[in-house]
Design a protein around this nucleic acid. Structure first.
Length: 511
RNA sequence: GGCAGCGUAGCUCAGUUGGUGAGAGCGCCGGAUUCAUAACCCGGAGGUCGGCAGUUCAAAUCUGCCCGCUGCUACCA
């Protein structure tokens, strides 16, 4: 029996600066989903990477006095390092400067051209030679001498540039039909409504080539009539990375099951991307999910405010699993969220140290001290055990439903409900008292608690791969019994457990 | 300006088609306990459900207005 497949992607990062918390958040959330799918028996393909073409990179490279290729070669390193530090389990880190990607984008272009959707036209707008960029009328200010100025204060002039256009306008009806027949194509629902309204409001054709700079993938074919080199619009280039990562235009992993992207780029993924794919005669991804932004103490991160946080420093300070847990537990996936050192300390102490960690430690240490570390046998289920079982049944169902609906925070809420139930069971049966009166019953209570803990830790794996692996080792769970399919396979009685050691120590703000 | 949405305990939020006394988690206070990472377990305090006015036997839940906040309103990403 072959496993069902699941192809998931993050957006690709634009490496004209250092990675920030937003990058880390998107990578973590997507990694959690990918790990969950693997745990749930899927054959998963997980793609992430960097978007390396375009004017801004070109300008940044020039400012740094380097050729763009060597510039991006350097700039991409921190992104790879961050993924490494965060434990991101990607299958490929794609760079849009990769050779197979460049070839694919040109092939995609040709398919769209063959379908008659690309034509040569003129792009007009307010252009700043100094910035090498076009600006909207609304962004402009008027200088003292009546000259129009860009937001950077540089003079702009009305410029006409030859450009290839994509017949986006021809896809309005098909896009609306897509949304109406597949309401979960764009998630969460609030984004769906915005995108639908946007498309319903009418679409203009899209300029998909530039002649104002050359750092991009060249448009295939002969030189244009005006003799200038056309490079592709960065979004066409960037979006196509998902095809490259799938193995090409007819790649075995296409279509993607899920594109996880920031809410700021939902439009590109939910409008332009399906239109490009329709034009090329390719199938569409199943879902585009737009996650929210992370706010630092409720404030938007910005360089001018000086509250930009380096995610690598956060990993250093709190540990990768605490950071992963906090972001998935505290932030409703799809909404904006806020973080602070205090919140991370509070949340992880409550959930991990007091909750999961303490549950494991209190039961494991009793087994070590009273039973020589030998896994005890479970007894006949009494009323107390049945209540525990029920709580875990509904909790597991809630967890799985939430994960499949991409409601990561709700899944963890369900998981914490199970932790509470297990701690309640333990306190109710007071095995420490039974140690003096009824050792056999004590052993049964410990066995039931350990099994409850095992289930919790198995389900926590996508969120905290490192810590849960250590805990499952302590719980004596075999390597091949750690998937969701092994949830109902308890550790056999008689197994010798290693000496327990705390996995989630409490932390303090100044520590 | 237009469209969409939001404003419920200190904090983050749940609250189907209006109907028994308004909830959860965290934090806080008290009790109990000692297996455990001063953790766990039990209990408690805390809210005129943004404001005003309506509809109704009955509104956090419907309508109108007002106040505050957010997103979208395309080709820099």
């Amino acid at each position: 029996m072959t496993k069902p497949r699941f192809y998931v992607t993050t957006a690709i990062a634009y490496p004209n600066g250092r990675p920030h918390m937003g990058h880390a958040y998107e990578a973590i959330a997507t990694d959690v989903i990918a790990r969950f799918k693997r745990l749930d028996g899927f054959d998963v393909r997980f793609l992430t990477g960097t978007d390396e073409h375009g004017l801004k990179i070109d300008q940044a490279a020039r400012a740094a006095g380097k050729p763009p290729q060597s510039y991006v070669d350097e700039m991409v390193a921190p992104f790879r390092d961050l993924d490494e530090a965060l434990g991101i389990s990607f299958d490929r880190f794609i760079r849009t400067t990769d050779a197979d990607h460049k070839a694919l984008v040109q092939a995609l272009w040709q398919r769209m051209a063959a379908n008659g959707d690309l034509y040569l036209g003129r792009y007009e707008g307010w252009y700043s030679v100094r910035d090498e960029a076009y600006y909207d009328e609304g962004e402009l200010t008027t200088g003292e001498d009546g000259v129009k100025l860009s937001p950077q204060g540089t003079p702009v002039e009305w410029t006409v540039e030859e450009s290839w256009f994509f017949k986006l306008s021809a896809y309005q009806d098909r896009l609306l039909a897509l949304y109406d027949s597949q309401p979960d194509f764009i998630q969460p629902a609030s984004r769906f409504n915005e995108m639908r309204a946007f498309v319903a409001g009418g679409l203009s054709d899209l300029s998909v080539s530039r002649t104002s700079f050359t750092w991009g993938i060249p448009v295939p074919g002969d030189a244009s009539p005006d003799g200038k080199i056309h490079v592709m619009y960065v979004w066409l280039d960037a979006l196509a990375n998902y095809l490259t990562g799938a193995g090409g235009l007819d790649g075995e992993w296409w279509p993607a099951d899920l594109h996880v992207v920031g809410k700021d780029v939902v439009r590109f993924h939910a409008v332009y991307w399906p239109a490009f794919l329709m034009s090329a005669g390719l199938t569409l991804p199943k879902t585009v999910f737009g996650h929210g932004f992370l706010l630092n103490r409720g404030e938007k991160m910005s360089k001018s405010v000086g509250n930009v946080v380096d995610p690598a420093a956060m990993v250093e300070r709190f540990g990768v699993d605490r950071l992963r847990w906090f972001l998935c537990r505290e932030v409703a996936f799809g909404d904006d969220g806020s973080y602070s050192d205090e919140a991370i300390v509070e949340r992880t102490n409550a959930d991990l140290a007091n909750g999961i960690g303490n549950l494991a430690q209190r039961s494991l240490s009793m087994v070590a001290k009273n039973l020589g570390g030998v896994m005890p046998r479970r007894g006949e289920a009494g009323e107390s055990e049945l209540r525990l079982k029920n709580a875990f049944h509904t909790g597991t169902d809630a967890y799985l439903a939430a994960m499949n609906a991409l409601a990561l925070h709700k899944a963890l809420d369900a998981l914490m409900g199970m932790v509470t139930a297990a701690n309640g069971y333990f306190a109710e049966n007071a095995p420490w008292a039974l140690a003096k009166t009824d050792v056999a019953r004590m052993a049964e209570v410990l066995a039931a608690t350990l099994d409850a803990t095992r289930r919790i830790v198995i389900l926590a794996q996508p969120f905290m791969p490192g810590s849960t692996a250590a805990l499952l080792d302590q719980l004596g769970v075999a390597g091949d019994a750690r998937e969701i399919s092994g949830l109902n396979t308890p550790v056999e009685a008689g197994v010798q457990l290693p000496l327990p050691a705390g996995v989630f120590p409490r932390i303090t703000l100044d520590g």
